[in-house]
Structure formats: C-alpha cells, structure tokens
Design a protein around this nucleic acid. Structure first.
Lengths: 252, 252
DNA sequence: GCCTCCAAAATGGTATGCAAACGTCCGGCC
DNA sequence: GGCCGGACGTTTGCATACCATTTTGGAGGC
C-alpha cells in the first residue's frame, strides 16, 4: 500500500481546489517555493490527509511533495507560526491536535472577531456586499433543501468570510483566516454530526437583517454565540456518548 | 562605518532584556535555533535596531548573529508569518513598514481584542489579578510623577498584558502578543510625542474600576477607543506639522 | 522473566555549495 | 546627449552532505 492516507474515512472534500479557509496570505507573504509548500501542507491538514497528532517525517513528506527538505522545513516553520503544526525541538513536528480547551478558546476568539467585524460592517458594508451575503445565504438554503451538508458548510463559511471582508480591515481578515484554519476541521465535523441546521439558518437570517438595520449591537450579540454553538452542541453530544460507553479508551 | 545602525537616534531602550511585548510563543512554538534567531530579530525590529523598510541581507545578518543562513532563513519565514517582515521572492526581505492604514487596522483590531478580553476578565479575573493590575497602575503613576516616559510606557503595556492574560484564553493572549509586536514601535513613538498622559491614566482608572464593578460593557467601551487614541492623536499632530512644512519630502 | 544498559539506525538540525534571478553599470548606438 | 542593450556582480533559493540527538532493538545481568 503506497499511499496509506488514501484509506482514511474522515477525508474532507473541498469543492473548490485550494485556499478553503480563505486564509488571506497577506501582502508581503512571500511567493517562494517554501510558501507554496506551506499552502500544500495546510490543505493536507485541513482536509484531514494529515490527521491531528500525526508526526511529520521530513524526508518522507519532502519526497512525496517532490521538494527538498529545506523548503519543507521552511513551510513547517510557517505553519507552526500559524498554529497548525507543533514543533518539538529535536523531536520533530506533529500536526497540531488542539485540546478541547484550546478549540474552545479559538472559537470564542473567532466569535469576538466576527462580532467586531459585524459591527464595523454595519457601518461600512455596501449594498453590493449585502446583496452578495443574501445570495450566499440563499445558496446555503438550497444546499439545506437538498440535504447537501458539504455545500451547506461551504456556503456557511463563505457568508462568514464575506462578513469579515466587509469590515475592510486587512489585519482582521488575515487573523480571522488563520484562526479559522485552526478549527476548520473541528467545525466541519461538528457540522456533520450535530442537528442544528435550522437554528443556524435562523441566526444567519437574523444577522443579515440586523446588518441591514445597521443594528451593530444585535449583530455582535448573535455572532458572539453563533460561532461557538455548533461546537458546544457537539461537546454535549460527545459527553452523552461517553456516558453511554464509559469504557471507550481515550482516543480523541 | 561598520555598524551603521548604532548611529540611529530613535533606538528604543527596553528595561527588561527580552520578550518586551509579552509575545507568548505558544505551547508548541519550537525551541530550535531558528526560533531563537527569530526571537533575536524580533527584538532587533522592535527596538528599532532594524528600522522599518530596512532590507535584510541574509549573509550579513547571519554572520552578525553568528549563525548560518539556514536558521536565519527559517527565522525570516516565521517573522513573515507574524507580519514583522515582508518577503519579496528573489528580492530579499525587508522589515515591514506598515502604512498608516495598516497600523490603524491593527490598532483597531487590538482594541477589539482587548475589549473582549476585558469583558471576559470581568467575569473570571481573581482578586489577585485585580490587585496586581492596581499595583502596576500605581507603578505607572509613579513613573508619571517622575516624568519617566519609558517606565510609564512599559507599565502601561504591562497593565494591558495583565488584563489580556486575565481572560485565560490562550489563543487570545497569543494573538494579542503578535499584533502588539507589530505596532509596538509605533505606539512607543506615539507615547513619546503626544501629550495625553493624564487622559490615559484616567482611562486606566476607569477601566480598573469598571472591572471591579464587573461592568463588562463599560470595560469594553473604554478599551475599544483607548488603544487607538494615542495613535490618532499622533496622526493629527503629524498632519499639523505637514501643514506647517508642506515641502517636507515623503519620509514617513 | 524483567529491567538496564549499550549500540546502531533513523531523524531532525546545521552548514555549505551550486544554480538562477535580479539589479547595476558600462559601452555602444541612435 | 540621451537611450537602449548586454555583461558582470551580488543576492536569494534550493539541494545535498554532514553532524548531533534521539529512539529503538537487543543482549546481558539481576
């Protein structure tokens, strides 16, 4: 078996080809090979080809990506700064496996960021931007009607991305993209497993309506909790499962 | 003249030795030589030894830091991800020289982050943490009385750092540290040049009092604007100067 | 049978060498 | 005199080779 990752079940398909999270590599972010390799590995991590906790063997991965170890190592340093991999000195790199605590921290932070973005967007979003958000919202509704959870998830992400972009704050957009990449996989899984389609749609509608009303406080209020809700529901769900089967080993 | 940076006037002295910004290198942040070099360069940038816009010559800087080019290049990739240097493919690296727009973006984002941290701290800050913040506040007052702008600036930073830490959100603390590093120098200069000592102190008092009252909304409201105020005042000041001497070349 | 210690293999870390790209400078040409 | 073009030097980018550290397998002793 040459490519053992092919067998993984939890593979996350992306309907686009790359830059799934909208991680906007800022202006001077480099265009060297190392940055390109970093993007490749980032996608591999997000799509669960490199699952959390997996050790990264430099020589192996380098020859799989058909590059030398030097650019690969540069890529790992970049991803480490982004929080997607953990570097253990003299002991190699592993794909970051954030604890529940850390995931919660990042999600709460994301919620605060989006809330702020929403407040700013209330003041400065254009008609076109609002229209585009509504369009994405309806595409999301369409995916909901068809039961297409993947498309639903991506339109959902697109809406949040559009909202953040409407803030016109480059630093905010970049930070949001980075943090989003760190929890992308968790949110995807949470989206698949929880049953809260309807409430999320209602919240989105409320957000967009509040945006049109320029009701910044309301936008912020909803976004704060909206971002973390799916995850909290998933945690509750897992606790229930754990209560049913307490003998399950700590597999995380 | 061998070391031309020695002659710079705007050198920023740090009374501690390192980690001036409290940039908390997160858990798995690597302990290899590359990360160490990155920390060195970060300090050099923050302390204005490497001024914004300065090109970074790999061989030169490598031998000055007594390391080879490989770890130095890794360090540059890290700093690029942090937004402190810009990498131009095949054309080298330069110290990031953020535009006024970008500085404003980062500062507004920082304000939003601290506001959120303040809200959380309202709920979960301990008595000890509050006492420590008051202690730092009084140290800041002492520096104010002595006219020691450097100590004042550092105690000021310490207070904000303590506030963010009180949020107990690792991701928030880390992001705050990174963003803070990007505007550290600007804020230092703004602190030196503007005359708003008193109002800043009043605001800090109001923040701490609101914290004790668990008045999250008030804490957030003040912090939002507090962070950007010094910078805005500096911009107004520079515009006045520009109005007086309009013939000044575009020197930043 | 288990623990400990040692050695060898593998892995990450660093340094250096080579190739390609960019900027610059000088000379020729219009 | 000004402009264009080519050659040179410098600098970055990548790859490979070497070194240090860790880990793992096994053999010996308790």
């Amino acid at each position: 078996m040459k490519d053992d990752t092919e067998a993984r079940a939890a593979r996350i398909p992306a309907d686009g080809k790359a830059n799934v999270t909208g991680a906007a590599d800022a202006k001077g972010a480099a265009g060297a090979k190392g940055a390109h390799v970093a993007a490749l590995i980032r996608e591999m991590i997000i799509q669960d080809e490199l699952p959390p906790g997996a050790p990264i063997r430099e020589r192996l991965l380098a020859q799989r990506l058909a590059v030398s170890r030097t650019p690969l190592r540069e890529a790992l340093r970049i991803l480490s700064a982004e929080g997607l991999v953990e570097l253990h000195p003299n002991r190699g790199a592993v794909v970051a496996a954030p604890s529940d605590q850390e995931v919660g921290d990042v999600l709460r932070l994301l919620g605060a960021l989006e809330a702020y973005a929403g407040e700013v967007a209330c003041e400065c979003a254009t008609e076109d931007e609002l229209r585009e958000m509504w369009a994405l919202h309806f595409e999301m509704l369409a995916a909901y009607q068809r039961g297409d959870r993947l498309a639903y998830f991506h339109r959902n992400q697109d809406i949040h991305l559009a909202l953040v972009r409407a803030s016109r704050n480059g630093a905010l957009i970049a930070q949001h993209g980075l943090l989003n990449a760190r929890v992308y996989r968790v949110r995807y899984v949470a989206n698949l497993r929880t049953k809260r389609w309807e409430s999320a749609i209602k919240e989105h509608e409320a957000i967009l309506q509040a945006l049109e009303r320029h009701d910044a406080a309301e936008v912020a209020r909803i976004l704060r909790t909206h971002v973390t809700l799916a995850w909290e529901k998933l945690q509750a769900l897992e606790q229930d499962e754990a209560a049913v089967k307490p003998a399950m080993p700590a597999f995380r």
